[in-house]
Amino acid sequence: MTLADLKPGEAGKIVKINAEGALKRRLMDMGVVGGTGVRVEKVAPMGDPIEVRIKSYALSLRRGEAKSIEVEAQ
């Protein structure tokens, strides 16, 4: 499953990023690396993007980008 499948309040652990190049590196630079815990906090009023909590800070990203992040539910 991917990060986009988690609902607000649900947490998971990052398995890997299914993306290449700039998107992948950007995600990694923001702390989206394997083994890191992540929790979905909110969904924007219009349904996209989403807010997640990772490495003790708040990160927002679009669902399209969240789809490339593989997670295992916790």
Binding site: A22, M30, A58, L59, S60, L61, R62
Partner: peptide, 8 residues
């Protein structure tokens, strides 16, 4: 461009 942004 991507939308990957910190909410400070």
């Amino acid at each position: 461009p991507v939308f990957i942004m910190e909410l400070p």
